[in-house]
Amino acid sequence: MREEKVKAMGIYAAIIGLIYLFISIMEIFGGIYNVPKDIFGGLVLLVIAATYLTGVKRALNGECKGLSFLIAGVFLSSVFGILYILILFANWLEYLIGNASFSFYLRPEIWLFFAILPLAYLIKKEIRW
């Protein structure tokens, strides 16, 4: 695999990791802008941020091992992105049967999931299993 590509992915992961870290802090302490207070959810984001950031240094050195953290990060981002999309759908159903009000609020986990899709595509192209 070309080293430059790994490095480019490393930069991408660094940015994503920092965003996760930032939002994680917002969720843990809550109430900043429209991010809800969700301690457990915030801790999960912290874990995801740590996963990306652990891989950054090695990826920037062009090491293959660094890539494994990015793969795991993409996996975790997807799990939580899809989870919250499903829950959003569930809330909408709840609204349809008249049990709760509904606002189309996209949790940060959801748009972060879309943000990592390009990275997922790059990795999929590079790795064969």
């Binding site: 996963t51 891989g55 293959c64 091992k65 890539l67 494994s68 953290f69 793969i71 795991a72 996996f75 790795i127 299993w129």
Partner: peptide, 10 residues
């Protein structure tokens, strides 16, 4: 390195 090796590493 296989995919499984990579995931296990993390």
């Amino acid at each position: 390195w296989t995919f499984s090796d990579m995931l296990d590493h993390v």
